[in-house]
Design a binder for these strands. Structure first.
Length: 576
DNA sequence: GCCGTTTTCGGCCCGACTGTTTTCAGTCG
């Protein structure tokens, strides 16, 4: 169930859409959108705020505050109900079709009585759309394609796939004459967990070659837009790729613009405006005479706005601009800060590589320590018996001799039972250097039962890390329903770390939960859960997720030394 | 509808591309 903050965000966003369809003033619409975002992203639960505190939220004025209050008290916003009456259901749905905004959605409803995506498809099939004044054959064809694409790309692409596709585009274009720089920008650069479409930025004084090559890439099935500086294509699997070409002196400004997010861009453009400047992808200019102030690098553009350089992962307008203005941007965790990995598997359980191979792969990455955490006995089919555990421990002791610079930790991934209990008895658990405990079953329990289950595990003195705490599998399995505020409180109190699992289809905890957890004082473990040597490279996705959650080095367990990790474990085991 | 250490009224982010237009509205990011 979403937090009340998100419920209110959804309602005000819907309200903004309905206003837009009704032809309301664009700035009024934007006021609703801004308020929706401000309320949805507010760190505290709106139920816990006084009226005065709600009114103090930026972009929330007395009208919005009154609506929030009405919703909190009565569970409804009566004016919104009225709006819904006025705009036929389904018209708003039409706006999901790329190429259809509020104006055309309303036009299609007024002229053809269309009130839904299915009806739109029928109207296109019977060539009625082209007959509407202001639309035409081309528009009809574009809408047809957009509808086809919509069904194909319901699912966003995972970050790892998106990076791979971007790099293929880069490879095909980087050696063309005149290309000075080329990078994937957009949400890939911000390391979002899933990606809608790809943005690639090129620095070149002459866009002709690169544009031509882009439009003719083998994977391209249709060209959505083509221009001198900007083109968009759709690939065979339905992914849209935008290419933007700018001169080198605008590189920084364009990189900011094209990295986004949109909300971040709007925020810093407002900042520029207030300071008598104008920011666009072409540079930062003096408003009075249009003179260029900055543009070649991101750093100089941010600096001219009075901001430190903001890491791409933070650019979501969730407070980073304010933090940069105040000069207290956090120093984010970097991949180079990580000293080891605290979650990995071998072919003793469900990994595909032997202990030796995994250890060698970890050593090759320069780790100072490496925990082997194969599955505990209760995991059907693959879990380790006690004998297998002890045999592995002996083997690790032998291998350790070959790796004097990397401390091997013998750990285990425990299974959290329905009641929060884990495998083995206390005495046996005490033999491990560290443990990870994870939910591997019963993902659909109630929030109460799930929360109780996880806090019971967290209170176990022999549980050091909760692995992939929500169990989500992106695009395949919903997260378990847990009261995070309670879980984070207990994790902080008991000295239990929560994992940021680096698998690109997990990224669990996710970005916003990392931020919430670390704010509550929870330690996180950025762990690969590697089942093969190449999985150790997934750490960059975990780092991206942690950065999106504003995690600092001090928040991260495996950024500490081996002896500090040992102390983290010992402290929890010590009787209080 | 929100906001203000220049303003309580008059502003509000910026530019590219498309299609159906005779000069620009709509959409997108």
């Amino acid at each position: 169930m979403p937090r009340v903050n998100e419920e209110i965000e959804d309602l005000l966003t819907e309200w903004a859409d309905l206003l837009q369809i009704g032809g309301a003033d664009a700035f009024r619409v934007r006021a609703y959108e801004k308020a929706a975002r401000a309320l949805g992203g507010h760190p505290r639960d709106l139920r816990d705020l006084s009226d005065r505190e709600i009114l103090a939220i930026p972009s929330v004025g007395k009208h919005m505050a009154a609506r929030v209050r009405e919703y909190l008290d009565a569970g409804t916003m009566h004016e919104l109900e009225d709006m819904r009456e006025a705009v036929p259901a389904g018209v708003r749905d039409l706006m999901r079709v790329p190429g259809l905004g509020p104006k055309r959605a309303l036009l299609l409803h007024q002229e053809l009585g269309i009130a839904g995506i299915g009806e739109l498809a029928d109207a296109i099939a019977s060539e009625r759309v082209r007959a509407v004044k202001g639309l035409g054959e081309k528009t009809e064809l574009n809408l047809f394609r957009a509808l086809q694409n919509l069904s194909r790309t319901q699912d966003r692409v995972r970050i790892d796939e998106a990076i791979e596709i971007s790099l293929r585009v880069v490879e095909q274009l980087e050696n063309l004459p005149g290309v000075k720089s080329i990078v994937p920008a957009g949400s890939v650069r911000r390391m979002r967990d899933t990606i809608g479409d790809l943005d690639v930025l090129v620095a070149s004084e002459n866009s002709e070659h690169v544009m031509g090559a882009f439009l003719e890439m083998p994977d391209v099935v249709s060209v959505v837009a083509r221009g001198d500086t900007k083109s968009s294509v759709v690939t065979r699997r339905g992914m849209q790729i935008d290419l933007r070409v700018v001169p080198a002196n605008a590189w920084g400004a364009a990189l900011i613009y094209f990295t986004g997010s949109k909300e971040h861009n709007v925020k810093i453009r407002e900042l520029a405006m207030k300071a008598g400047m104008k920011l666009s992808e072409w540079g930062l200019f003096r408003a009075c005479d249009g003179r260029l102030i900055a543009g070649a690098t991101e750093e100089e553009v941010y600096a001219a706005l009075g901001l430190a350089w903001i890491p791409p992962a933070m650019r979501e307008d969730t407070g980073e601009v304010e933090a940069a203005l105040a000069g207290d941007l956090p120093a984010l965790i970097e991949q180079t800060d990580l000293r080891g990995d605290l979650h990995s598997h071998t072919d003793l359980t469900d990994g595909i590589a032997s202990l030796d191979v995994m250890v060698e792969a970890a050593a090759a990455r320069g780790f100072e320590y490496f925990a082997i955490t194969d599955h505990a006995q209760n995991l059907a089919m693959t879990g380790m018996s006690r004998e297998a555990v002890l045999a592995q421990r002996e083997k690790i002791a032998t291998i350790q001799l070959r790796f004097p610079h990397m401390r091997l930790l013998h750990g285990c991934e425990l299974n959290i039972g329905r009641d929060g209990s884990v495998d083995y008895d206390a005495e046996f658990l005490a033999g491990f250097d560290i443990t990870v405990a994870s939910v591997h079953s019963l993902f659909r329990l109630s929030r109460e039962e799930t929360t109780a289950r996880l806090i019971a595990a967290a209170r176990n003195p022999f549980v050091n890390v909760i692995g992939h705490p929500t169990g989500r599998l992106i695009g395949r399995r919903e997260p378990i329903d847990v009261d995070f505020e309670v879980l984070f409180g207990v994790a902080a109190e008991t000295g239990t770390a929560l994992e940021v699992n680096c698998f690109p289809d997990r990224l669990d905890l996710r970005d916003e939960h990392v931020r919430w957890a670390t704010r509550r004082g929870v330690t996180i473990s950025i762990a690969t859960d590697a089942h093969a040597p190449k999985h150790l490279d997934n750490v960059r996705f975990g780092i991206g997720t942690a950065q999106r959650g504003w995690a600092k080095r001090s928040d991260v367990l495996n950024a500490r030394t081996a002896s500090e990790v040992g102390k983290f474990v010992a402290d929890k085991r010590a009787p209080r």
